[in-house]
Amino acid sequence: MARGGINKALVQKARQAILARGEHPSIDAVRVELGNTGSKTTIHRYLKELEAADQGRGTAPIPLTDQLSNLVAHLAEQLREEAQAGVAQEREQLARERRDHQDRLRQAEDRSQHFEAQCVGLTEQLQAAQQELQQERQARQQAEVENARLLQSNHDLDTRLQDRDGHIRSLEEKHQHARDALEHYRQAAKEQREQDQRRHEAQVQQLQLELRQLQQTLMIKQDELTQLNRDNARLLAEARQQQKDLQSRQRKLEQHEQALANGQHTWAQAEQENSALRERCDTLQGEVARLGEVRDMQGLLVHSLQERLAEALAQLKYLSHPPAEAGSVHQA
């Protein structure tokens, strides 16, 4: 089938131009004259038709050997073109598959690099989260130590407060004893009442003064104890808040670890895809080698056909012009 608008008139014009230059109008020469366009089979058919037309106008008939030679050359040319077309088609198909494979391999490598970068980022985030967790643990330990110290201080204050209460009870007992002694002195000696009463009042005033001082000291200690209780409550609240923050950070750490595990799983799948693509590439390369062997076998077949054709032509020439006939021709 003609390509690029090749027709018989164009082939005839190209043939005449070649003959005008004194050259032989072969198929390749006509095709070059046409600008490397057109099928060789079509050009060969048009050349045959033009040669037949020239022969019909009074030229001598073409010998049978030349006709067979042209026919065999045409068949060999057509066989070679078909073989080359098949090989070219296979090469084109293999080239497309190779390009597709290279594109898929490149995409897989890009995805692998992306997953590796994501894995590195997740690892850095995990390390940062672990450092924050370690800092939170240290802060928690410090808070626990401070809380223990405050509890011990509270315990010491309670002990001191109990000592003060015992001292106050002792003073109250002394005061009661003094009253009992005063009453006894009143009953025993009325003449010394005024003197004893003054001394007793002085003692009572002294004791009352000491009692007020002790009560004031007790109030101050109670205020200190209240403040310590408030500080303890505040520290406990801060410890609870730190515990909540620590739990929140642990949950974030678990989420980061889960994301890291997912990234590693996706990276493993990409590695499997890469392995499958490499196996496919090896298979395609084997197929290319096999097609090369097929092409070489077809070339050998064409060469064998040409040798058989040469032998057939020799036999035809021998049958068409036997040796005796050739001797008589030379004598004439």
Score class of each variant (00 low, 15 high):
Gln195Gly: 13
Glu173His: 14
Ala73Asp: 08
Ala268Asp: 03
Gln89Asn: 15
Val120Leu: 09
Pro61Gln: 02
Leu253Asp: 01
Thr283Leu: 14
Ala332Lys: 03
Glu210Asp: 07
Gln141Asn: 13
Leu309Ala: 09
Ala129Phe: 02
Ala20Pro: 01
Glu82Asp: 07
Leu214Ile: 01
Gln141Tyr: 11
Gly121Thr: 11
Leu300Trp: 07
Glu33Ser: 05
His24Trp: 10
Lys317Glu: 12
Asn229Ile: 02
Arg91Thr: 14
Lys317Asn: 08
Ala312Tyr: 01
Gly86Val: 15
Leu235Tyr: 02
Glu173Arg: 09
Trp267Pro: 02
Ala2Glu: 04
Gly292Glu: 04
Leu211Trp: 03
Gln222Tyr: 09
Lys48Gln: 06
Ala17Gly: 01
Gln113Phe: 15
Arg186Gln: 15
Lys174Leu: 13
Arg179Cys: 10
Ala143Tyr: 04
Ala289Lys: 07
Leu301Asn: 10
Glu254Met: 09
Arg99Tyr: 05
Gln264Ile: 06
Leu126Gln: 07
Ile220Gly: 08
Gln118Phe: 03
Leu71Asn: 04
Ile18Met: 01
His200Ile: 04
Gln67Pro: 02
Ser69Trp: 02
Gln241Ala: 15
Ala276Cys: 08
Leu71Arg: 04
Thr123Trp: 08
Gly292Val: 05
Gln306Leu: 13
Thr217Leu: 06
Glu273Pro: 01
Gly166Cys: 13
Arg278Glu: 13
Pro25Val: 00
Glu90Phe: 04
Leu122His: 01
Gln12Ile: 09
Ala261Met: 09
Gln131Glu: 09
Leu157Ala: 08
Glu51Val: 15
Gln213Asp: 08
Glu90Met: 10
Gly166His: 08
His24Gln: 12
Glu33Tyr: 02
Gly166Ile: 11
Asn36Asp: 10
Pro25Glu: 00
Arg140Ala: 08
Ser170Gly: 11
Leu319Ala: 11
Gln142Pro: 02
Arg251Phe: 12
Ala143Gly: 10
Gln331Cys: 15
Tyr46Asp: 00
Glu144Cys: 05
Tyr318Pro: 03
Ser170Arg: 15
Gln258Phe: 05
Leu277Ser: 07
Arg15Phe: 03
Arg198Ile: 13
Gln55Ser: 13
Leu75Gln: 14
Ser328Cys: 12
Val204Met: 07
Leu291Trp: 10
His44Arg: 08
Leu235Lys: 01
Tyr185Ile: 15
Asn229Phe: 01
Glu224Asp: 07
Arg290His: 12
Ala188Tyr: 11
Gln16Gly: 03
Ile18Arg: 01
Ser275Arg: 08
Cys119Gly: 15
Ala85Ser: 13
His44Thr: 09
Arg104Pro: 03
Arg137Pro: 03
Glu90Gly: 11
Tyr318Lys: 08
Gln107Ile: 14
Gly58Ile: 04
Gln131Ser: 08
Gln195Ala: 14
Glu77Phe: 06
Arg280Gln: 07
Arg199Tyr: 03
Ala139Met: 11
